[in-house]
């Protein structure tokens, strides 16, 4: 077991194989060796850490980047992109994104918590957590893409464009508005 201390001074006894999903913590453990000393996580709150260390619900393995892999996974198609053929001339027609069962169940949270987790995942170096839920929570909207006003409200982003800048950017991107 590993003892973690969060930014709000809560202590968590966590199984080593779970916390080692974090490359940061894994490296720390390797550096300090076996120790009873708590590991401070000054950039992660207790509520976020609870989410990050939620156990998996299925048979799992851990990849080199600390990603939790579930043997039960589903495949979804990206909703509105042509196929990705990065650095190749493959003839693949569909881009697919694997989302493990654990990832799907993982972040059923509000939008503020979503980015808190993204920040924590960045700090802890857990890449798989960075963006999974954007596709399902941040991106989707009843009529398609969310309007900028709604995204601002959703994520509490302050609009700092001048009226002229906003008008120009709106004109440049008018094509993407709902039809």
């Amino acid at each position: 077991m590993v003892l973690l201390v969060t930014s709000d001074n809560e202590q968590f006894q966590t199984e080593k194989d779970i916390v080692e999903r974090s490359v940061l913590i894994k490296n720390m453990l390797e550096d300090v060796g076996e120790s009873d000393q708590p590991i401070p996580l000054p950039n992660v709150s207790s509520s976020v850490l609870k989410k990050v260390t939620q156990p998996s619900t299925g048979p799992t393995e851990i990849d080199v980047r600390g990603r939790y892999l579930s043997t039960a996974s589903t495949t979804v198609e990206s909703p509105s992109r042509p196929p990705i053929l990065e650095q190749s001339q493959d003839e693949t027609r569909k881009r697919t994104t694997d989302i493990s069962e654990w990832d799907q169940k993982f972040i059923t949270v509000d939008q503020e918590m979503l980015f808190e987790i993204i920040l924590a995942a960045n700090y802890l170096d857990i890449k798989s957590l960075l963006c999974r839920r954007w596709l399902q929570d941040g991106s989707q909207h009843d009529q398609g893409a969310r309007p900028p006003e709604e995204i601002r409200k959703l994520f509490n982003i302050v609009n700092d464009f001048t009226p002229e800048e906003e008008a120009q950017i709106k004109k440049e991107n008018e094509w993407a508005e709902d039809r």
Binding site: G138, S139, R146, N173
Partner: peptide, 10 residues
């Protein structure tokens, strides 16, 4: 991970 149209709006 974000489709083009969502990215434009973001």
């Amino acid at each position: 991970q974000i489709p083009t149209r969502d990215l434009v709006r973001l």
